[in-house]
């Protein structure tokens, strides 16, 4: 089975946020989402595609804002509206996306943001 093909945006637990997001050498895109948020559910397949197609440049992780311990991260990063996707590089937020975007538009904006930090 080809590992690349099955790669998806993975969940990150609040406990692992420091390690997997803030301490990562590679840029990390974090999707703050919740199950009751319909635009978030529509964003999910887009993020899975991006996770797969851009895996050489960025790691895509999902933080469920209703999951245990996640509220403090949502508060720390002033989440007021979801889906809210933040691009982290060396522990800092370098770009954010608020609200649903179609794949083409999202990917282009993400490429541009990644090019700036490259």
């Amino acid at each position: 089975m080809d590992e690349q093909v099955n790669q998806k945006a993975e969940d990150v637990a609040a406990n692992d946020f420091q390690e997997k997001v803030l301490n990562s050498d590679k840029p990390v895109l974090v999707d703050f989402w919740a199950e009751w948020c319909m635009p978030c559910l529509m964003m999910a397949p887009v993020l899975d595609d991006v996770a797969r197609e851009m895996s050489d440049k960025v790691t895509v992780l999902k933080l469920n804002t209703e999951s245990e311990g996640s509220r403090e991260w949502a508060i720390k990063y002033d989440i007021r509206s979801i889906p809210n996707m933040k691009l982290f590089h060396k522990g800092e937020v370098v770009h954010e996306f608020i609200g649903f975007r179609p794949k083409e538009v999202f990917q282009q904006e993400l490429e541009e943001a990644l090019n700036k930090i490259a």
Binding site: W36, C37, P39, R80, S81, I82, N84, I98, G99
Partner: peptide, 17 residues
């Protein structure tokens, strides 16, 4: 401050308040 405290959708964003 759109999406950062300003919203037109209470049902979408209410839970963050």
């Amino acid at each position: 401050y759109w999406g950062k405290g300003v919203s037109s959708c209470a049902t979408c964003d209410g839970a963050f308040y």
